[in-house]
């Protein structure tokens, strides 16, 4: 009970305050439109009417959390049920295909973004680990490549995204791959930096111990360096997976015709429906939280199995 009061209760209070502020801001930000309507209709607004109006507008400047929740349900669960009912009488697989291919279903866009993120993340992480191994084992590579890797973290590489997509499109590569390339290079650099640190983390005493046992280079790598780099790897993976997702979303801004969460946000900003943007944003946030927590859970399990946590 005391753990709850100490750790969970404050978080709940803060979240509740944020939601209350949200509703208050909705009234303030949407009131202009409500007053405007009242003026044109030639009637006076009482405070209750004002609040009721600002919380239920069709195109509000700031939608309320319940409006966003409703939009989320309408564009996911409700769409699936609707599509399923409409294809009544068709063969089962065709119905499934129809539901999965529904372009107005938010879950389809989540899936598009997720697949690009995962493909890029896997490639970026793999290449990052390989480069880190090279840097640790080759002094010339360490001297020449490492400063560039570190510098590249301070420059906005995300700015390259539109160009990569346009160029790849012009040589005939489209769809999932261009987005994944952006995801890959965003997750690549944190992994390189983290892994180099991790592979170098065994201290002189441990390395001497390996020499005492006359361990050769590959034994030192597999039995000492790689296991000690695991905690560093997971820290980088958590940063990398979040960066991958941002990369995929920004990629979708440039090629919006293929769909994805970024495309939904852009579509919302063109037609001026804030609710659509917020729904896509909440979906992206949930996706990020799920991905990071999956990596975090894996980290806990792996570290426990490897004996890092006592």
């Amino acid at each position: 009970m005391s753990g709850f009061r100490k750790n969970v209760w404050p978080v709940l209070v803060v979240v509740a305050v944020i939601i209350a502020l949200w509703y208050a801001f909705a009234v303030v930000l949407n009131s202009n439109w409500a007053y405007d309507k009242a003026k044109r209709g030639g009637y006076e607004l009482t405070f209750t009417e004002l609040v009721a109006d600002t919380w239920t507008q069709k195109k509000p400047r700031l939608p309320t959390p319940d409006q966003i929740g409703e939009e989320l349900w309408k564009s996911t669960g409700a769409r699936i049920i609707k599509k399923w009912d409409r294809t009544e009488g068709k063969p089962f697989w065709e119905r499934i295909a129809k539901v999965a291919g529904d372009p107005r279903n938010l879950l389809r866009h989540v899936w598009l973004t997720l697949s690009a993120t995962m493909l890029g993340f896997v490639f970026g992480t793999g290449l990052g680990i390989l480069l880190a191994v090279g840097i640790v084992h080759n002094k010339a590579m360490n001297n020449s490549v490492m400063p560039w890797v570190i510098t590249s973290q301070t420059i906005p590489i995300l700015a390259l995204a539109p160009m990569i997509i346009v160029v790849l499109n012009s040589i005939g590569v489209s769809g999932l791959v261009p987005k994944s390339i952006i995801s890959a290079y965003l997750s690549f650099f944190p992994v390189v930096v983290g892994m180099v640190k991790g592979l170098r983390s065994p201290d002189a005493m441990q390395l001497d111990q390996m020499r005492t046992w006359s361990g050769n280079k590959s034994q030192v790598f597999w039995k000492l360096r790689l296991p000690s780099s695991v905690p560093y790897l997971f820290t980088s993976l958590k940063i990398g997976v979040a960066a991958s997702l941002v990369g995929a979303i920004v990629g979708e801004l440039t090629i919006s015709q293929n769909g994805g969460l970024g495309a939904r946000m852009l579509q919302g900003s063109y037609v001026g429906t804030t609710i659509l943007i917020w729904a896509a944003l909440i979906a992206a946030a949930t996706l990020a939280a799920v991905l990071v927590s999956i990596v975090g859970q894996t980290e806990t399990v792996v570290k426990k199995r490897m004996g890092f946590v006592k």
Partner: peptide, 10 residues
Amino acid sequence: ALPIIGMAPI
């Protein structure tokens, strides 16, 4: 940890 950049259109 969230993709805050998505707030940009809003």
